Lab assay of single mutants.
Amino acid sequence: NQASVVANQLIPINVALTLVMMRSEVVTPVGIPAEDIPRLVSMQVNRAVPLGTTLMPDMVKGYA
């Protein structure tokens, strides 16, 4: 099963993503693939993302 990107903490809106904010985990439904974590660094989410939430492509500005 493919690992997805999961919030490692509350990720506020309009804050640049850092490695420490994200972890990889096998979850259902599948979200952004874990291998895209380096690409996500410095991008921003378009809504607050609670701890443990799977990041979906539509949550990250400029990802999709």
Rank of each mutant, 00 (worst) to 15 (best):
N1C: 11
N1W: 07
N1Y: 14
Q2K: 06
Q2P: 14
Q2W: 10
Q2M: 14
A3N: 06
A3D: 08
A3G: 09
A3C: 13
A3P: 10
A3H: 10
A3R: 06
A3V: 08
S4P: 01
S4L: 01
S4H: 01
S4W: 02
S4M: 03
S4R: 02
S4G: 05
S4V: 01
S4Q: 01
V5R: 02
V5S: 03
V5F: 02
V5N: 02
V5Q: 02
V5H: 02
V5Y: 00
V5W: 02
V5D: 01
V6E: 01
V6L: 14
V6R: 03
V6S: 02
V6M: 04
V6G: 01
V6C: 05
V6I: 15
A7N: 01
A7G: 02
A7Q: 01
A7H: 02
A7P: 01
N8L: 05
N8M: 10
N8P: 02
N8D: 12
N8W: 03
N8A: 13
N8G: 08
N8T: 15
N8V: 08
N8Q: 11
Q9N: 06
Q9E: 10
Q9V: 15
Q9K: 12
L10C: 13
L10N: 13
L10W: 13
I11R: 01
I11K: 00
I11S: 01
I11L: 15
I11Q: 01
I11P: 00
I11M: 06
I11Y: 02
I11H: 00
I11V: 07
P12I: 03
P12S: 14
P12Y: 04
P12F: 03
P12R: 07
I13W: 08
I13L: 12
I13F: 07
I13S: 12
I13T: 14
I13E: 15
I13R: 08
N14R: 07
N14A: 10
N14M: 06
N14F: 07
V15K: 11
V15G: 09
V15C: 05
V15D: 08
V15I: 15
V15A: 13
A16F: 09
A16W: 09
A16S: 11
L17S: 00
L17Y: 00
L17P: 02
L17H: 00
L17R: 00
L17C: 03
T18H: 06
T18S: 14
T18D: 08
T18C: 04
T18M: 07
L19W: 09
L19A: 12
L19P: 13
L19M: 13
V20H: 15
V20A: 14
V20D: 15
V20W: 11
V20Q: 13
V20C: 11
V20F: 13
V20Y: 14
V20R: 12
V20K: 10
V20S: 14
M21V: 03
M21C: 04
M21N: 07
M21S: 05
M21H: 10
M21I: 03
M22L: 15
M22Q: 00
M22W: 03
M22E: 02
M22G: 01
M22K: 00
M22N: 00
R23F: 03
R23G: 07
R23I: 05
R23N: 08
S24L: 05
S24F: 06
S24N: 06
S24H: 10
S24G: 12
S24W: 08
E25S: 10
V26A: 10
V26K: 05
V26L: 11
V26R: 04
V26P: 09
V26M: 08
V27E: 02
V27N: 03
V27I: 09
V27S: 05
V27H: 03
V27F: 02
V27A: 09
V27K: 06
V27M: 07
T28K: 05
T28Y: 11
T28D: 15
T28H: 09
T28V: 14
T28S: 13
T28M: 10
T28I: 09
P29Q: 04
P29K: 05
P29E: 07
P29L: 05
P29N: 05
V30Y: 11
V30N: 13
V30S: 10
V30H: 11
V30R: 04
V30E: 15
G31S: 01
G31E: 00
G31N: 01
G31Y: 02
G31M: 02
G31Q: 01
G31I: 02
I32L: 05
I32Y: 02
I32E: 00
I32G: 02
I32K: 00
I32S: 00
I32M: 03
P33H: 09
P33E: 04
P33T: 06
P33F: 12
P33G: 06
P33A: 08
P33W: 08
P33S: 11
P33C: 06
P33N: 09
A34V: 12
E35P: 07
E35V: 06
E35T: 14
E35R: 06
E35Y: 10
E35M: 08
E35Q: 12
E35D: 14
E35H: 10
E35I: 10
D36M: 10
D36R: 05
D36H: 15
D36Y: 11
D36S: 09
D36A: 08
I37T: 09
I37L: 10
I37R: 09
I37H: 01
I37Y: 03
I37P: 01
I37D: 01
I37E: 01
P38F: 09
P38H: 13
P38Q: 11
P38I: 10
P38S: 14
P38L: 10
P38C: 09
P38K: 12
P38E: 11
P38T: 13
R39M: 15
R39E: 05
R39T: 10
R39V: 12
R39W: 07
R39S: 07
R39Y: 11
R39A: 10
R39P: 02
R39G: 11
L40S: 00
L40K: 00
L40Q: 00
L40I: 14
L40G: 00
L40M: 08
L40Y: 02
V41M: 06
V41F: 05
V41Q: 06
V41D: 02
V41P: 00
V41E: 06
V41I: 14
V41N: 04
V41K: 05
S42N: 11
S42T: 09
S42K: 09
M43S: 07
M43F: 10
M43C: 06
M43H: 14
Q44I: 09
Q44M: 14
Q44A: 13
Q44H: 13
V45M: 08
V45A: 06
V45K: 00
V45R: 00
V45P: 03
N46L: 13
N46P: 02
N46I: 13
N46F: 10
N46C: 15
N46A: 15
N46M: 10
N46H: 11
N46G: 10
R47E: 10
R47H: 13
R47W: 06
R47V: 14
R47P: 02
R47G: 07
R47S: 10
A48F: 15
A48E: 13
A48T: 15
A48D: 15
A48G: 07
A48P: 13
V49E: 00
V49A: 04
V49S: 02
V49P: 01
V49G: 01
V49D: 01
V49H: 01
V49M: 07
V49L: 13
P50L: 09
P50E: 13
P50K: 10
P50F: 06
P50S: 07
P50I: 04
L51Y: 13
L51T: 12
L51F: 11
L51P: 11
L51G: 09
L51E: 14
L51W: 13
L51C: 13
G52V: 03
G52P: 01
G52S: 06
G52R: 04
G52D: 11
G52K: 04
T53R: 08
T53Q: 14
T53N: 08
T54L: 04
T54Q: 02
T54D: 02
T54C: 05
T54H: 02
T54E: 01
T54W: 03
L55W: 02
L55A: 02
L55G: 01
L55M: 15
L55E: 01
L55K: 02
L55I: 14
L55N: 01
M56A: 08
M56K: 09
M56P: 01
M56Y: 11
M56I: 07
M56Q: 12
M56D: 04
M56R: 11
M56H: 08
P57D: 06
P57E: 07
P57I: 05
P57M: 05
P57V: 05
P57N: 05
D58A: 09
D58V: 10
D58Q: 14
D58S: 13
D58Y: 07
D58P: 06
M59H: 11
M59R: 03
M59S: 05
M59Y: 09
K61E: 12
K61R: 13
K61Y: 08
K61Q: 11
K61H: 14
K61I: 14
K61T: 15
K61D: 11
K61G: 07
G62E: 13
G62T: 05
G62C: 15
G62N: 13
Y63P: 04
Y63N: 04
Y63L: 08
Y63V: 04
A64N: 12
A64H: 14
A64S: 14
A64D: 12
A64Q: 15
A64M: 10
A64F: 05
